[in-house]
Design a protein around this nucleic acid. Structure first.
Lengths: 335, 335
DNA sequence: GAGTGGAGTCGAAGCGCTTCGACCGCCGCT
DNA sequence: AGCGGCGGTCGAAGCGCTTCGACTCCACTC
């Protein structure tokens, strides 16, 4: 491995000069800079990450905690993770992938070892165990999601309350009066995952306002689970004409089942989904949907992290505004 | 932050002793060890990652390069990534997430900076640009996937040739003579991604052996693409009675379309999928399938990495044997 | 009773980098 | 002419850890 010292010798300058060329923290004459840069090229020098971290107490690594559960909203998670990794690189950072498995201990370990300069947490619960640790670790952190108490924390998320309200508004405007909500799996609510609860809150509030009847049912992904849930919904509320679907793994099964039952979409029944654009456009019926801006969320989270590391910190909650796109799955309520 | 020196002072021993307690590289008396461990607990000490990496030239980090494309076999990727992260932790390593975006440069950067001790590459192409760099970086590396030239590389993968053969065998045994293969998106073949080509090779070879006619068609995921592809397949080969599906995003659309066309599965048409178990069991018809053992692949890759780092290296290709599970989507060919 | 060797501990020398203070010219000011 | 100040460079002191060699005891052996 080539070292700083070797570059310095090759360029005929001192080690510190090379360091300053690299960091730009002191002015360097054009001629010296050029010579140093040439030497770096020729020798194929790469700064040693460990030495750098030790000397500067900055690792240029951002830790990303993703949920362990691989059974939920996987594409969204993946998209966020990739967006985080990609934007981190554009800011000169790398991303360390932590799974939920280690739980709160991971926070302690990462903060304690100075392995990462900052952390981004996904899949945040309302009363997340990791938050107290995070707060008094003093590390900069950004949450993707919204806990109950956001004091001292920076958060990025889609405004799920507004999202719920938007879906209701759309269906109400089309004359629907009885709407069923196909939620995430029951476990998601039991863990008090913020986004799921907030969506339902938003739906409930707006429904009350517009005089709509809501039936909310958690639902696992997959065909079998959806079949059961759907049967029970129509048993209980035969007059249901609208669906709001939050679990993307239930979307296609739902469309399929409706079709089998001879209920036409959107003539007899309207469906609004909360899902990534790709799911909405690739489904068997092009879905009216509120997009989950996974990439945007990942990008924003990184930008917040970078801003805070640079001291331009702003402990704030940034809620992205939902956008509803009308496609082929929603129409006027049947008369 | 608490340092080694502080722990040493607190325990009344020298720094090196604490270090040896931590690493176990020299014998320490029980009493000393206990005292040191107590101090570590009380002070809440965590070794500084940078310092450790610098002094030992081991970062205990494994870099994982995942493809940037978020549109392909996402669940599989995610499952592998999580399995890698999880098993890495059980071996005391962390995982650095690199996206394909940076391309071969990432290999140079990581190797050069000693940020990671080893690399795991996913989405390997037959003639992958990263391989030459990897070879002469001297870093230990494991590929998930199989390039054309595996010399000097450790690889882990499902045996996709055998997988293809297995699918053909199953359908041939049921009397099917005309089978269509729904492949991955065309771009996957253009990039010469190993697994896709090898699957087709395996299918072709076995089909010849069993006198089966094969029609292979690449296919994007999603409903619309599948509809087009399916139409063209039946135009060209009206006698098709079997399908082998490799693109998991095409599975559900295919089932849906067949149903719409009044072709019953498995009475009129049999479908065999190559996909994760979850997809197979959650589809609208429980699918006869060859499982893609994503977790297993991730775990094996990490184990290989750890073995090589420990000097118990074995540059070898490890192909996992495919397992076909018969479910409800395949049956005897119609007469 | 001197010699041998292993168990247990310590001191010191780095690992490769950043950064602070100091130094040296040289320009421009009064 | 003299001096402040600034652009540009260097030396040296760490950052917190690992690891090598050396040292001390003490239990054995012959």
């Amino acid at each position: 491995m080539v070292t700083l010292a070797e570059v310095a010798q090759h360029a005929g300058v001192s080690a510190s000069t090379v360091s300053y060329v690299l960091s730009g923290k002191r002015s360097i004459s054009a001629s010296t800079r050029e010579r140093v840069e040439d030497s770096i090229q020729q020798l194929g020098y790469h700064p040693n990450a460990g030495a750098r971290a030790l000397a500067s107490s900055r690792s240029n690594i951002i830790a990303l905690m993703v949920p362990l559960r691989t059974d939920m909203y996987v594409p969204v998670m993946m998209e966020i993770a990739i967006a985080v990794a990609t934007s981190a690189r554009t800011h000169g950072h790398d991303v360390l992938l932590l799974t939920g498995e280690e739980g709160p201990a991971a926070v302690r370990r990462i903060a304690g070892s100075s392995l990462a300069d900052a952390m981004i947490l996904m899949d945040v619960e309302l009363h997340d165990e990791r938050l107290p640790l995070l707060r008094d670790s003093g590390r900069t952190a950004v949450l993707i999601g919204l806990p109950a108490d956001t004091s001292g924390l920076t958060c990025v998320d889609l405004d799920f309350e507004a999202t719920g309200a938007l879906c209701v508004d759309h269906l109400a405007g089309l004359g629907h009066r009885e709407v069923a909500v196909i939620g995430e799996a029951a476990a998601v609510y039991e863990r008090h995952t913020g986004f799921a609860e907030r969506t339902v809150d938003g739906i409930r509030a707006k429904a009350q306002e517009t005089g709509m009847r809501i039936l909310h049912r958690p639902c696992e992904g997959g065909y079998a689970a959806m079949a059961g849930t759907l049967g029970r919904i129509f048993d209980e509320r035969p007059g249901t004409t609208g669906f709001i679907v939050q679990n993307e793994a239930a979307v296609e099964p739902l469309l399929n089942l409706l079709q089998q039952q001879g209920r036409a979409v959107p003539e007899d029944v309207s469906v609004v989904a909360i899902c990534p654009e790709q799911v909405a456009t690739q489904a068997s019926v092009r879905l009216t949907s509120v997009a989950i801006p996974a990439q945007e969320m990942g990008r924003r989270a990184v930008e917040q992290v970078v801003a805070e590391l640079a001291g331009r910190g702003t402990d704030e909650v940034e809620l992205l505004e939902p956008v509803l796109t009308v496609r082929a799955s929603s129409g006027p309520a049947p008369v």
